[in-house]
């Protein structure tokens, strides 16, 4: 029954309250197997709480969850051996070595001796930990610790991995390596759920849910989300960015302004004709020197558009 289900995760109207605070508000999700599914959202948007409910750490206040065909949290024990969970904060033991940590995890999952030895060997190799096997976890760098955490989470060959902001404490090179490991795991049939607040990471996911204030405000394939944005994006590169920003804010057609480095992304309603020309003219009149160009929306724009105040209906990308 568990195997026949096409979906790795099926959540309906998932809600979790902490006292009067609603951390997760009627979230519904369908996560297909052998996919990387991303949660994108700022801190406090409900990413961690949702993941914790999906892996049985927290009970939902209301709503239903099926993970790998099992009802959660009722059948949490059955799911434990099939899911690997990686916490936001390093949660292996600082005062144990790499090898001791992995051996402990193998014993806790009651891997049979020969299989444990083989798997430990494999993950040491796969995550480049061979030379570090006698190093105490406390003495390792952020990137090395993260590799160890992923090695431990995959030791029992879970069908599904749930990773809560796994790259928040590592350098860009380690992040790239980490994502290569994730793609290798997916290629072997693992389903991965990963939360992040990095746009570039979110773009790599097969599918994405954008969370804000505990609600799914946009969902779909990253490409589709960007293509289907109901707003035009005008990129402005001005000598005086602050002055340009002040001027553009006066335009009634402008829904939102986002600064990306030296560039400004101006979001304008689709219905506005020749938005590019209007922006250019506005800046010229104000005497602000700037390059103005219509451009393709990126995920940041999608995120900004999805979290605009007054936007009620959640946007759905192509299903």
């Amino acid at each position: 029954m568990a195997e026949s289900s096409q979906l790795a995760v099926q959540a309906r109207d998932l809600t979790r309250r902490f006292g009067s605070v609603v951390a997760v508000d009627h979230v519904s999700l369908d996560i297909e197997r052998k996919n990387i599914y991303g949660f994108l959202g700022p801190n406090g948007s409900g990413k961690s709480t949702t993941i914790r409910m999906l892996c049985g750490l927290l009970y939902p206040t209301s709503g239903s969850i099926k993970v790998l065909g099992y009802d959660m949290p009722r059948q949490a024990e059955a799911v434990r051996t099939k899911v690997g969970y990686m916490t936001q904060k390093f949660s292996l033991w600082d005062d144990l070595t790499v090898l001791e940590n992995l051996r402990f995890i193998a014993r806790v999952y009651t891997l049979e001796k020969a299989r444990a030895a083989r798997r430990i060997d494999e993950v040491l190799e796969e995550f480049k930990l061979k030379d570090l096997s006698d190093r105490l976890a406390a003495a390792m760098s952020g990137g090395q610790r993260q590799r160890l955490a992923l090695a431990a989470a995959t030791l029992h060959e879970p069908e599904m991995l749930m990773l809560d902001e796994p790259t928040s404490a590592v350098d860009p090179q380690s992040r790239r390596d980490f994502w290569e490991s994730l793609f290798a795991l997916v290629a072997r049939g693992t389903t991965i759920l990963v939360s992040t607040h990095y746009m570039d990471e979110a773009e790599r996911c097969h599918r994405l849910a954008i969370l804000d204030h505990g609600r799914v405000v946009a969902e779909g394939e990253p490409e589709r989300l960007m293509d289907d944005l109901p707003l035009q994006v005008i990129e402005v590169q001005a000598r005086d960015t602050d002055a340009a920003r002040r001027e553009l804010r006066k335009m009634p057609e402008v829904r939102s302004l986002a600064q990306l480095g030296l560039r400004l992304h101006v979001l304008v309603e689709r219905s506005v004709s020749d938005a590019e020309g209007r922006v250019r003219q506005m800046l010229q009149v104000a005497g602000i020197e700037a390059e103005v160009e219509a451009t393709r929306a990126n995920l940041e724009d999608v995120f900004v558009a999805a979290t605009l105040p007054g936007k009620e209906a959640p946007q759905r990308g192509a299903a």
Partner: peptide
Amino acid sequence: RGNLELLITTPV
């Protein structure tokens, strides 16, 4: 140290 959060998701 957060170890407990990990332990709870194992079969222990």
